[in-house]
Design a protein around this nucleic acid. Sequence first.
DNA 1: CTGTTAGCGCGTTCAG
DNA 2: CTGAACGCGCTAACAG
Lengths: 338, 338
Amino acid sequence: MTVTVTIYDVAREAGVSMATVSRVVNNNPNVKPQTRKKVFEAIERLGYRPNAVARGLASKKTTTVGVVIPDISNSIFSEVARGIEDIANMYHYNIILCNADKRKEKEIRVINTLLEKQVDGLLFMGGAVTEEHIQAFKTSSVPIVLCATADENNTIPSVDIDHEKAAYDAVQVLIQNGHRSIAMISGSLQDPANGYARYQGYKKALEEAGIALSEDLVRVGNYRYESGSEATKYFLELPQRPSAIFAATDEMAIGAIHTLQDNGLRVPEDVSVISVDNIRMASMVRPTLTTVAQPMYDIGAVSMRLLTKLMNKETKEGDLTQVILPHEVIQRNSVAHV
Amino acid sequence: MTVTVTIYDVAREAGVSMATVSRVVNNNPNVKPQTRKKVFEAIERLGYRPNAVARGLASKKTTTVGVVIPDISNSIFSEVARGIEDIANMYHYNIILCNADKRKEKEIRVINTLLEKQVDGLLFMGGAVTEEHIQAFKTSSVPIVLCATADENNTIPSVDIDHEKAAYDAVQVLIQNGHRSIAMISGSLQDPANGYARYQGYKKALEEAGIALSEDLVRVGNYRYESGSEATKYFLELPQRPSAIFAATDEMAIGAIHTLQDNGLRVPEDVSVISVDNIRMASMVRPTLTTVAQPMYDIGAVSMRLLTKLMNKETKEGDLTQVILPHEVIQRNSVAHV
DNA sequence: CTGTTAGCGCGTTCAG
DNA sequence: CTGAACGCGCTAACAG
């Protein structure tokens, strides 16, 4: 197809008007079967391929949605992305994918280019949702849903889990197993969901159990394996080492487990470890990791589904657009009774 | 922005023609600084946002490329995707991402919708490149590059590693460590790159070393952890168990390691394990996995870079467009001398 | 340096 | 059930 064949060429070839060709291409029922057939044949003969850009300009719909994601190479997010794409596909949308690394300026920038590209909707997965983000969202004429994040005031549609509760539940598992000296490897406290909220859950669980919070038992990591490892080394140098570690993410937990093992300690006999996420790797390490499962795929799928409803204006005023998906503790082998 | 403000509105507001607005928006130097300033102010005042769809129709360029990928939630591919997106971003392209699960019909389908969307280029990452694929590619007026695959006749631009050689090198490591009884956990032999080619490399290494190929020592898996585990169970029931296992992928290798350990065997003291890929997890298991590293990120980055050259017609006739990236064996702790 | 004028390929009234 | 005509918002010559 070196020369572009247009709807006009097809019309001429089939001996009808372009309006008719447009109708059959768009499955408009108001076409005589015989005419439809003629048109299809012409399309076949010419190898006609509809131009979605022209269609988009005329119809003001592109059937593509934008998704801004922190980092597609991170297994957490790639799982969410798969959920998004599957549902998008089901509703005949394509997705434009942009990594923004949780950096605000980049996030704002891609939001704007996505909007320029006239996406029919936007899925935002990022770090904090700041006032600037809200401003950017406001300039949008298409619906936006927050995916795996939420804004503080819950003014924007979103789907996420209850991070604080998830962390709380994880720490509860430890407490119910008799642990009192529980360390935490946290994420950045600037990160509202994976960082701050999970730390709050930890604090709350300790409080309720009447356990004093100790600064020495909290280290801030960057979600990755190595930082889990480093935090653990710190704990091991303490005069009295904790009997359990709660990591904000599985990766950090695995880093912790290995560092423990490398120092001659057994998990869970000597130290218990628990975390939140349930990435694939959690069931692939020894001991297998007890963790609170976050339904990544579903978060993606549900948020995309919500977005389709919003794009089709299927939601009525007052409909619930803040959805919290359930999490679940997965008992495996990294936690023992003290 | 509930009413759409167009280039025409900006022109009126600034007291210039739309051509001039177009020029400043597109950074055309032929505009008096003062005029430029007026236009920018008008843009600011009106909150004008260029419509990329209209621009695409008029200019026949969308600055977006399509990428068909087997499965974004698979860490191998998500790493490649990140490489693609980074370079795309650098050259101001966006990417439309489509999962096709290596299923031919789905691959063909998404190729067509991507082409309808008038992408400026296409990156194809899939299973086998069949005659049907070639036909679909031929209908394209935009360049296409195969990413982490290649067609049999090397007629289409591509970037990949030499899978056969990578497998060969892995098995060589085993042989040089004195192993003679080497099992393989293969991928599907229908899969040209990760399956068939890696199996060929295994065969060739054995042949050269004068080791007879034994059917019992080859199991076909599906690249995943569980199948590595199952294959290993099979090997353990053999009258004489192999002293080493070569897995076509890291995930299967890790499944093998754990199954070995669960059966009271030590890795690498009792059985050595090696594979190809070098996923993040490879350095996060105990023992850490010796493997042949495939530069996933680079494969993505280089293929995207190649695509930009093709899109800009920067490549001259006869330029090399089949690139093979180097692989490298990463010595870790899962292989021992026999 | 700036404005005028055609389309880009298609959806969508509105007649008939 | 079908066709004519307009316009979606913008780029790209071509004049001036």
